[in-house]
C-alpha cells in the first residue's frame, strides 16, 4: 500500500476547505494539502504533470459554480484512469440521486455527506493507504 503524501480539496466554500484542512492536520497528517475553489482550477492543477508528489486523494464537492462535481468527473475521466487516485465525493445535498450516481461511477471511491468526520477519513485511509497518522495524536 502506498503512503499518502498529497491531498487535493475541491470546494467553492472557503470555510469548508479550511475545516477539512484543519481536521486532516489534527489527525496527524503531515503531507501536502492543496485547496482549490473551483473545478476548472482543480483540473488544471491535476493536469500539470510536474507535481511531486501528485495528489493521491481528492475530496470533491458536488455543488459548485460553473463546472459542478459531476461535470468535473466527466472531464477528469478524459485524462485519468480510474486508479489514478482515490476520489471522495462530498455534498450537503440531500438528493438521493447523487448517492446512486456516485455509487455507479467507477471513479468515485466513496460518497459522504458534509461535514467530513474523523471516522470517514479513517475509513478511507485504512482502505486505500498505509496509515499516515500517529495513533497517539490527540483528536
Amino acid at each position: 500500500m502506498q503512503t499518502l503524501e498529497s491531498i487535493l480539496l475541491v470546494d467553492d466554500d472557503h470555510p469548508t476547505n479550511f475545516l477539512h484542512t484543519r481536521l486532516l492536520k489534527k489527525m496527524g497528517y503531515v503531507g501536502d494539502i492543496h485547496e482549490m475553489y473551483n473545478a476548472e482550477d482543480a483540473l488544471a492543477y491535476l493536469r500539470q504533470a510536474d507535481h511531486n508528489p501528485r495528489a493521491q486523494l481528492l475530496f470533491l464537492d458536488l455543488n459548485m459554480p460553473r463546472l459542478n462535481g459531476w461535470e468535473f468527473l466527466q472531464l477528469y475521466s478524459e485524462y485519468f484512469t480510474e486508479t489514478a487516485r482515490a476520489i471522495v465525493v462530498l455534498t450537503t445535498s440531500l438528493n438521493p440521486d447523487d448517492e446512486i450516481r456516485a455509487h455507479n461511477s467507477p471513479f468515485v471511491t466513496a460518497f459522504h455527506r458534509k461535514p467530513l468526520t474523523v471516522d470517514m477519513i479513517k475509513a478511507i485511509v485504512q482502505s486505500q493507504f498505509a496509515a499516515f497518522w500517529n495513533d497517539t495524536a490527540a483528536f
Binding site: D12, H14, Y37, N38, N63, M64, P65, R66
Partner: peptide, 20 residues
C-alpha cells in the same frame, strides 16, 4: 457568459462564480 451556461443561469442557486 459561456455558451454552455446560457440555460443554467436561469435556474435557482446556479452560480457561475465563486463568492470570492
Amino acid at each position: 457568459i459561456d455558451e454552455q451556461y446560457k440555460e443554467r443561469i436561469f435556474m435557482i442557486f446556479q452560480r457561475l462564480h465563486t463568492r470570492q
